[in-house]
């Protein structure tokens, strides 16, 4: 087989009758950062949990680091770093004790573990908090503890389920910076997110998931190129006005998305497009011209926004 670290074919997860992951195929290669982008309920976590050997697959085949998660779970998990969607830290314990306990589950010798804990805490910039109870940390700090915890065993594959959800912009940028450093060290990363900027910043390749299926796959650049024109103009109208336009916008332009409060018009020539809008007597409240993003790709593919 190829040099793929993960190979999934027809991967399916069902909870009773409900299909959470619906026969997806993907491959993750050594050293890349691979993303799963999708809205709530798309099946991202279910997929991560199958890869992490904490949830059995229902159908299809899955190989992770050349191992079968169903039969070689402990051996596989020994080589994975996992940052689950929920931190699941022991809030009563200190940062150090949380990392220590976790490290012992991997049977890391005590002296080595103590050094590793210091390094990791420094890496996530929590040195002053090492003996603070997790309880007393902010959300962003807790997330950083979880990030450090996931690295305790020097994983070959580092899996992060929504690493920055719920963090403020500054904390997100700190985390992105840390993840970027890991990536430069050559660690293979898997990230799920419903933030398109996160996916664009971090991922070499990604799949867009919706309702348990993969609807597109490629590098962020590639996806934007093939699914959307270069620019978007967002027209925001006073409440109620959009309805009275009666499909006029869709008639005038061939690539549009009409949302509740605004119309998106995709174009390669924003100026000419604006002229057309004015010629037809439409008076938007605000006009915003910007580059297309993965958000637009998602909108195009599913007719819905990522974060609602």
């Amino acid at each position: 087989m190829s040099d793929a670290l993960i190979q999934a074919t027809g991967l399916t997860k069902r909870f009773d009758d409900f299909v959470a992951v619906d026969g997806i195929d993907f491959e993750v290669r050594q050293g890349e950062t691979f993303g799963f982008l999708g809205p709530n309920g798309a099946g991202k976590t279910s997929t991560m949990r199958m890869i992490s050997a904490v949830s059995p697959i229902t159908e299809g085949s899955l190989s992770v680091l050349g191992l079968n998660p169903a039969t070689e779970g402990p051996r596989l998990r020994a080589r994975l770093g996992i940052v689950p969607q929920e931190n699941n830290l022991d809030e009563e314990l200190t940062v150090r004790d949380n990392l220590y306990m976790y490290g012992r589950y991997f049977d890391i010798p005590k002296s080595e573990l103590n050094d590793r804990i210091k390094e990791l805490v420094e890496f996530v910039q929590l040195t002053e908090k090492i003996d603070a109870k997790v309880d007393a940390l902010s959300g962003g700090m807790k997330r950083r503890v979880t990030i450090a915890r996931g690295l305790i065993n020097n994983p070959d594959l580092y899996i992060l389920d929504e690493p920055t959800t719920g963090l403020d912009p500054q904390a997100r940028h700190v985390l992105w910076d840390r993840l970027y450093r890991l990536k430069q060290r050559g660690i293979t990363l898997i990230i799920t997110t419903h933030y398109m900027d996160e996916a664009e910043q971090l991922c070499d390749r990604l799949v867009v998931m919706d309702k348990g299926k993969i609807v597109a796959e490629g590098s962020p650049q590639h996806l934007i190129e093939i699914y959307t024109p270069r620019d978007v103009v967002e027209l925001r109208f006073p409440i109620g006005v959009l309805e009275t336009l009666n499909g006029k916008i869709e008639e005038l332009f061939d690539r549009t998305e009409i949302l509740a409060d605004r119309a998106l018009i995709y174009t390669d020539d924003a100026e000419r497009m604006m002229a057309t809008v004015h010629e037809h007597g439409m008076e938007p409240e605000t006009v915003l011209a910007r580059r297309s993003t993965l958000e637009d790709v998602f909108l195009r593919l599913t007719g819905r926004t990522l974060v609602d």
């Binding site: 904490v54 929920e86 049977d107």
Partner: peptide, 14 residues
Amino acid sequence: WRQTWHATLATPVG
């Protein structure tokens, strides 16, 4: 409540 065992099961411990 704290789901600490969820974290444990992400390690080699089954």
